[in-house]
Design a protein around this nucleic acid. Structure first.
Lengths: 193, 193
DNA sequence: ATCGGATGTAAGCAGTTGCTTACAAACATC
DNA sequence: GATGTTTGTAAGCAACTGCTTACATCCGAT
C-alpha cells in the first residue's frame, strides 16, 4: 500500500460520478422539486439506494452537484465577460454542456432549505458582477442583471413557442447587452467583442 | 321565479368564490406545484371535495384563477405604463392586492399542461409590450422585457436576503426603466412620470 | 480457503398527492 | 309533510415521494 491505497473494486466512485452527472442534468432540466431520486438513479443506471448511501439525502446530492458545478466557471471567466458567457450558456441549448448556470438558476424556485444552497453560488455571481459598476447601488444592479438571466432561462425553457428559444443567440445577446450596459454604467466592458 | 331564478341556498357561489380567492393567493405565493388542493380548501374554509365538484380538477381551478386575474389589469392599463405597473405590482408586496402578475409569472415554472394556461395570458402581455417599439425584433424584445419581470419576481420571492426584496421599489424602478428604454427604443414612453 | 468489509439489489415503509365515493344535511317545490 | 335536488362532509384509494432495511454478492487481505 505504497502508491494506491484504494483500488476501486466494483467502482463505487464510478457510481458516485454517474449519480452526480445524472443529477446535474436533471436538476438543470427540471429543477429540484420535479426531479425524483428514482429519475436520477434511473438515468445513472444505478440502484436508488446507492444515492442515499453515497450522498445521504436528495438535498445533500443537490449540494454536491451545485458545489461541483459552481467551482469551475466562476473561477475561470473574468467578470466583464461573465454576463455574456452566462447568457450564451443558457441560449445555446446543446452547445451548453455546462449545466452550472441552469442548476443555480433553477434553484431559485425551490424549497427553503434547498434554495440556500443554490443561493450561495448566486452570491458569488453577484459579487463578480457588482464590481463592474461604480454606481452606489451596485449590489442591487447586479441582482437585477442576474434576475434577467433567471427570467430568460425560465421563459426559454418553458415556452417552446417563445422567440427566446428559437432566435439566434447572438441576436438575443445583441439586444440584451446594450440594456445591461445601461444598468452597469461607467464600466470597463461587458462583452469581449 | 320572475326575477331571481336562483337564490343561493347554502351559498354554493360563496364557496366557489372562496376557493378562487384562496387559490389565487396560494398560486401567487407558492406557484402551482407547491400548492396542494388541501391547502386551498383549508384557506378557503371549505371541504376539499367541493373543489372537485365545482372545478373538476386542480388544473381547471388554476385556469379559472388565471382567467379571472388576467381579464382586469390588461384591459385597463395602457401599454406604455404596463411595464412600470407590472414591476411595481411585484415589488410592492402588501400594496399588491393584485395577484395577477405573480400568478402568470409563477406559471412559467410549472407543468407542461399548466404552463400553457398561463402563457396564453402571457401572450397578451407580449402583444401589448411589442407595440412599444418599432425595432424589427419587437416580439423578441417584448419577450426579453417579460423575462426580466419573471426573473425579478422569482429572485425577490425566494431570496429574502436579496436587495430586490428590501430595496425601495422606486429605486428599483429607477434602475430598470432606463435599461428597458434601451431595449424598446424609439418609443413613446414607458413610465408615466 | 476464508473472513470481513465494501458494493449492489429488492422490497417495503410512512407520508403526501390529486381525486373519488358513499353518505348526511339543508333547501325548493309540490 | 313528502320528495328530489343541491350543498357539505368524512373516509379512503391509487399513485408517488424520499428514504430505510434486510439481504445477496464481490473482492482484497490474511
Amino acid at each position: 500500500m505504497d502508491d494506491h491505497q484504494q483500488v476501486r473494486r466494483r467502482d463505487s466512485s464510478a457510481s458516485r460520478a454517474a449519480l452526480l452527472d445524472a443529477a446535474a442534468e436533471l436538476f438543470a432540466e427540471r429543477g429540484y422539486d420535479r426531479t425524483t431520486v428514482r429519475d436520477i438513479a434511473g438515468r445513472a443506471g444505478v440502484n436508488q439506494a446507492l444515492l442515499f448511501r453515497y450522498f445521504g439525502s436528495k438535498e445533500a446530492l443537490y449540494a454536491a452537484v451545485v458545489a461541483r458545478a459552481g467551482r469551475d466557471k466562476l473561477a475561470e471567466v473574468p467578470p466583464n465577460e461573465l454576463f455574456a458567457q452566462l447568457l450564451r450558456g443558457i441560449l445555446d441549448r446543446q452547445a451548453g454542456q455546462d449545466h452550472s448556470s441552469q442548476i443555480m438558476l433553477r434553484s431559485s424556485a425551490e424549497d427553503v432549505s434547498v434554495k440556500a444552497i443554490g443561493q450561495e453560488l448566486g452570491q458569488d455571481y453577484i459579487r463578480a458582477l457588482s464590481v463592474l459598476t461604480d454606481a452606489p447601488e451596485a449590489d442591487l444592479r447586479a441582482h437585477l442583471v442576474l434576475a434577467w438571466i433567471v427570467g430568460i432561462d425560465l421563459m426559454r425553457a418553458d415556452g417552446g413557442l417563445s422567440p427566446l428559444a428559437s432566435a439566434n443567440p447572438e441576436q438575443v445577446v445583441a439586444c440584451v447587452l446594450p440594456a445591461v450596459r445601461t444598468l452597469l454604467e461607467r464600466i470597463k466592458d461587458i462583452s469581449p467583442e
